[in-house]
Amino acid sequence: MRITGHPVLPDLPADEVGFTFNGEPYTAREGEPVAATLLANGVRQLRVSPVAVEPRGIYCGIGHCYECRVWLNNDTQVRACLTPATEGDSFASERTEE
């Protein structure tokens, strides 16, 4: 799903930041939000909704809707559409009990 060889825009730097989402490893471009990396790898579902238990993913893409919220290092809920990964981060749809 990555866009390469864009006719107008220059190419972006290559992937280099390693993180996991629900235990699976991914490689992000520096500064790229986690949701974009996941979509580039074909992952659309980021969590399930609490009441209807429906799959949810990117909706607004700019931090307004909180639909893309995921757990960062089992500690903080973050918006996947805004938050870039740093090396070794672990993101997950659900928080796990310690």
């Binding site: 429906e54 799959p55 949810r56 993913g57 909706y59 607004c60 893409g61 559409c81």
Partner: peptide
Amino acid sequence: TLPGAMTIGA
């Protein structure tokens, strides 16, 4: 609400 349905801005 399905993943894949998004705003045009997204």
